[in-house]
Amino acid sequence: MDPHLAAVAAACLKAAEEDTMPFPHIVGTLMQAGFESYAVDFRRATATYFLPDGESLEVPMHALDTPVAPAFDPAPLRAAIREAQLQVPGYSYKGFCAKAAQAGCAGYIVSFSGRRALYIGRTAETHVELFPA
């Protein structure tokens, strides 16, 4: 992958983990760079960024202290998503990831063109979250 694009992806992940850039700005930055989507895998502690031509880049992310729960529970996952959307006091991306894992979310895929995120449980249960208008 082009070194500039790899640097953009790595910088966006770092900004998320350090809570220095909000999600909408991360999405805008990745889209402007030409990415089409990305996928986060909590069990492998990776984020994979995809270009429209199929090229991808896997970037290591922070490992969760909490294992992914065996049962998928969309209610606490939706609550964690709302906290992220509203940037409630005390919100952090790492805290969001921990809450998602506790809710049984093994990872998620963000589609920029589809304007949605798909959250996936260990048993392939899903929750679709459309981007806010």
Rank of each mutant, 00 (worst) to 15 (best):
P3D: 13
G107T: 04
F23R: 01
F131M: 09
I26E: 08
T123L: 06
F35T: 06
D65I: 01
A11F: 02
T29R: 11
A47C: 15
P70I: 05
R82D: 15
H4K: 13
I81V: 10
P22T: 02
L51D: 13
P76E: 01
G114Q: 00
P74E: 12
Q102T: 12
F35W: 07
A15D: 08
Q87K: 12
R78H: 05
D41W: 06
L86V: 06
I26C: 03
A47R: 07
P24W: 06
L13G: 03
P3I: 08
Q85K: 08
A124F: 08
L77M: 14
A9H: 00
F50T: 11
H4F: 11
D2R: 02
A10G: 07
A84M: 15
A10Q: 15
K14I: 01
G54T: 09
E129V: 05
T29D: 02
H25L: 10
G28C: 05
A75R: 11
H25E: 15
P74G: 08
E18M: 10
T46R: 14
F112P: 07
A79I: 06
L5P: 00
Y93C: 01
E83W: 02
G121R: 12
F42G: 05
A11P: 00
M1E: 13
M61D: 06
L30G: 10
L118V: 14
A98L: 07
P76W: 04
P76T: 03
T46P: 06
L118W: 05
F50H: 15
I120V: 14
F112A: 01
A80F: 09
V27C: 15
T126I: 12
S92Q: 02
A15V: 00
E18N: 13
A45C: 13
D73R: 09
M61T: 15
D73Y: 00
Y119T: 02
P60C: 03
A69T: 01
G121K: 12
D2L: 02
F35S: 10
A10D: 13
T46G: 11
A100F: 06
P89R: 08
A80G: 04
I81H: 04
G114E: 04
K14E: 05
P89T: 02
K14W: 03
E83S: 11
C105S: 09
I109Q: 05
F72G: 10
F42N: 05
T29C: 07
G114C: 03
H127A: 14
G90I: 11
I26V: 12
C97Q: 09
V88P: 09
P24D: 07
Y38T: 01
P70Y: 01
P22D: 15
P60G: 01
T66R: 03
Q32P: 03
R82F: 13
P22M: 11
R78D: 07
I81C: 00
P3V: 06
E18L: 10
R78C: 06
G95D: 02
K94Y: 15
D53K: 03
R115C: 01
A133N: 15
F42L: 09
R44A: 15
Q85G: 14
E129C: 00
L13Q: 09
K14Y: 03
A33R: 07
F50G: 05
Y38V: 00
V68L: 01
P89H: 11
R115T: 03
F112T: 06
Y49P: 05
A84L: 10
A101R: 00
S92A: 04
D53H: 03
